[in-house]
Every structure is written in structure tokens, then in C-alpha cells.
Computed example of a mutant assay.
Amino acid sequence: MTHLVTTQWKKNVQFESDNPSGKSVLIDLGADNGGKGDGLRPKALMLTALAGCSGVDITPMLEKMKVDIDDFKIVIEGHLTEEHPKYYHLVTVDYHFYGTELNETKIKRAVDLSVDKYCGVMEMFRRFAEVKVESHYHTK
């Protein structure tokens, strides 16, 4: 299986990139790097891809396990190297689950399966960065 993405220069340092879904995203740099800040930053998009990949693993697993959650968010912090080319050398992934009675055992199982087996983006990150993962349970 392959994916094809076409990225078209719009102006200055702004690009529009499509996706196999047919949707597109605007990419731009901040004013401090010559852009207007009208789009998403390229490196941060990698963190978004990581969160999305893991999230779409976890939510269906929780549904199959009949685990009820009220809310779920993933907070990722990427630490860049100081020297060029700058890349993420340390990434922390914090999973936050919210609900009245959270089944932490089943939630942990779903997170572990995503992190260790299913999320291909997670595996890609592990090839160049130290990845730290932690789950947080917020009950009402």
C-alpha cells in the first residue's frame, strides 16, 4: 500500500497539501520565520499525525471493550534538537481520559496496544526520538 500526497506552493513559504482522503491542509511558517502564520507548521503536523494515529486506534478498542469515557485528549510535547537539521529527539505523549467510572485496566490495555503494536506513526517516531508515554485518569 502506498499513499500519494501532492503539496503545492501558494506564495512565500505557504503550501497547500492534499491527503488521500481528498481533504487538504494549509502549511505556513510564523512571522519569525518569514511566514504569515496562516497555516499549520510542518514539524508540529508530525505531532498531530502521532496523536491522530494513536487516537484512532484507542477509541474503537475502547468501544469494543465496552469502556465508557466522557472525554479523551492527547497532549504531545516535542523537544527539538539545538543544531540543524532540527528534529524531535524527545517526545512526551500524555493520554487524558475523563469519566465517572473509568476502567483503568482496559484503558491501559487499549493504550498499550496502540503504542506497542498498532500505531505506525508511533513506530516511526521511535526510530529517531525517545518517546515517553503516560496515561492520566480524571474522574468526576
Rank of each mutant, 00 (worst) to 15 (best):
P60W: 04
Y95W: 00
G120H: 00
G30T: 13
D70H: 14
K108Y: 00
L113P: 06
R126Q: 14
G30E: 14
Y137I: 00
D32I: 01
V25Y: 01
R127W: 00
K11A: 09
V115E: 14
K23R: 07
I27D: 08
R41C: 13
L102T: 03
E16W: 02
K117V: 05
H3V: 13
D28N: 10
T7N: 11
T81M: 07
M65E: 15
M46K: 06
D71Q: 03
M124W: 03
V75R: 00
G39S: 11
S24C: 05
D32M: 10
L50P: 01
V91F: 04
H84K: 13
L62V: 03
S24T: 09
F97S: 04
N19V: 13
G120T: 02
R127L: 06
T92D: 12
D94N: 01
G22L: 11
P85Y: 10
G78F: 05
T92G: 07
V111T: 08
L113R: 02
D38F: 04
D28C: 14
M124N: 04
I74Q: 12
R126G: 08
V56Q: 03
K66L: 05
K86M: 15
D18H: 13
G39E: 07
G99Q: 07
R127F: 05
I58H: 07
M1D: 07
K86H: 00
E16M: 12
N33A: 14
D70Q: 13
N12F: 09
L90R: 15
I58T: 08
M122S: 03
T100I: 08
A51Q: 05
A51Y: 02
F97N: 05
H89R: 13
D70K: 09
R109H: 05
A110V: 01
L4G: 12
G52L: 11
F125Y: 03
E123Y: 01
N33I: 00
K86N: 14
K86P: 12
L50F: 00
D32A: 00
G22M: 12
I69T: 07
P42C: 14
M46C: 12
S21G: 11
K36S: 10
F72H: 11
V56E: 15
W9C: 00
D94G: 01
F125N: 07
E123L: 01
T7Y: 05
N33H: 08
T105A: 11
K64D: 15
V121G: 02
L102H: 06
C119G: 04
T92W: 02
E101L: 07
V5N: 14
I76H: 01
H136I: 14
P42W: 02
G37V: 10
C119E: 03
I27T: 09
M122W: 01
D32R: 14
M46E: 12
T81Y: 04
Y95C: 01
D57W: 02
H138E: 12
K11W: 03
D71R: 07
K73D: 15
K106M: 01
V25S: 06
F97A: 03
H3L: 14
S135Q: 13
G99K: 10
I69A: 09
K64P: 08
Y118F: 01
D116R: 04
M65D: 11
T105L: 02
T105C: 00
K117G: 05
A31N: 06
A129E: 11
H79R: 10
H84E: 15
H89D: 14
K108I: 00
M46V: 07
I107M: 10
G52H: 14
L4F: 10
E82T: 11
L50Q: 09
E123C: 00
K23S: 12
M1Q: 08
L62H: 06
A51S: 12
